[in-house]
Design a protein around this nucleic acid. Structure first.
Lengths: 215, 215
DNA sequence: CGTGTTCGTTATAAGTTGTAACTCACGCGA
DNA sequence: TCGCGTGAGTTACAACTTATAACGAACACG
């Protein structure tokens, strides 16, 4: 086996600098958005000159892509942790909302406005299906009524997107609508479209969760 | 009364140039995203030098804000037109989807990732409530079941966000969930999160619309 | 037919990303 | 322990960007 624990001092230093750069990047994104991320500004804050960062990240887009990957990874980990501690579908929903409110810009890194030409690397789509798998597991545990819509049949026929998850068609549809509905509320809440409306977004969120578990 | 029809030749020319600038900006946004919008590139395509555009738009953010305003206006107009031609809630939903698919980046201009510090001008929020009013009208026409949840009561108590629209609490909630659910599906579809999944996003959308009108 | 407003131009400042070339120091192998 | 090579950080530079300032020219209006 390769001794994964023993890294050369240079690798350790490199990892540390990369982590620090990403830390500053996250901070900058949280306060001014991803489009305002500046490698130069990060370098100055770290006390070194601009081009030095190109030793650690090939380009600005490369850094952003890495931050997107970290965001996906973070969501998958919180989802997996919630599932392993016995959370059901409402539990996962609240884990999702907590994760989103914890850092809205991180949420938008995953589910926000995409750049038209951009295609995510393959490993990121892998993490995405990992997230969906947790959602599918939780959806399978819920009781389903007997009726099966044509859409659910179509879903069952093309289940390769779920990693061929062995869930009944109704569970596939439930996971999908769970995804879209929760994202609908969360996205609008985080974007501030509910501000000044007087009602509590958490109640609207819970209302959707309730509708989801007992249709 | 002021003769609104007679504009000086300079005003007419100014409006024409502004419209042409926005046309190029929309095209640029559609192909590379709003963050890649460049005043310089627009100026070059129009055959004039960079700083000339500052006679027409105070800043890059000013131009983007105007495009956002236009996008809101466009959505409000299609909504209003659909409602005036007798569209019910499913009709409005499909009008929304058509409008979104017609220009995805325009949709994201309205409902996409917000810049943390940005606050929309007051007139834009006015158009937003105009959109919501159409949705509320259509929601009111649908029959409601007797039960009223505490959330709906809360919604009815703070209905000033709807311009004090005289809709029953159940209609308020239905309009709200209609908004969030349709946005949930559309946003994920336009962002490409369904690509490669094999199913037709239109069917998922219709499935949500059906759930919305007959719970 | 002046006259002044407005348009478009160049010059400039202060940013940005990214490449190239050069030092210098650190760590690894001999 | 001692060289030597790899990699880190530096400056210099090119090509961009937004935005302001100052200037000239054209145009509409009285």
């Amino acid at each position: 086996m390769a001794e994964t624990g023993t890294r050369t001092p240079r690798e350790r230093y490199r990892d540390q600098v990369r982590a620090e750069v990403k830390e500053h990047a996250r901070e900058q994104i949280a306060t001014a958005g991803a489009s305002a991320l500046s490698l130069n500004a990060i370098a100055k804050r770290m006390g070194m000159s601009g081009p030095a960062l190109y030793r650690y990240f090939a380009s600005r887009d490369d850094l952003i892509t890495e931050l997107i990957r970290d965001a996906y990874r973070s969501l998958a980990d919180t989802f997996r942790a919630a599932a392993e501690s016995g959370a059901d579908l409402p539990g996962l929903a609240h884990a999702l909302r907590g994760w989103a409110l914890d850092d809205p810009q991180r949420y938008f890194l995953v589910y926000g406005t995409p750049v038209p030409g951009y295609h995510a690397p393959a490993d990121i789509t892998g993490i995405a299906s990992e997230i969906m798998a947790v959602l599918l597991d939780a959806s399978t545990e819920l009781p389903a009524d007997g009726s099966t819509t044509p859409f659910e049949v179509d879903l069952g026929a093309h289940r390769h997107w779920a990693g061929d998850h062995p869930a009944p068609p109704a569970a596939l549809r439930r996971a999908l609508t769970c995804w879209t509905r929760l994202h609908g509320v969360l996205s609008l809440e985080l974007a501030g479209h509910f501000t000044g409306m007087g009602f509590d977004p958490a109640v609207l969120f819970d209302s959707e969760v309730a509708d989801l578990t007992a249709p």
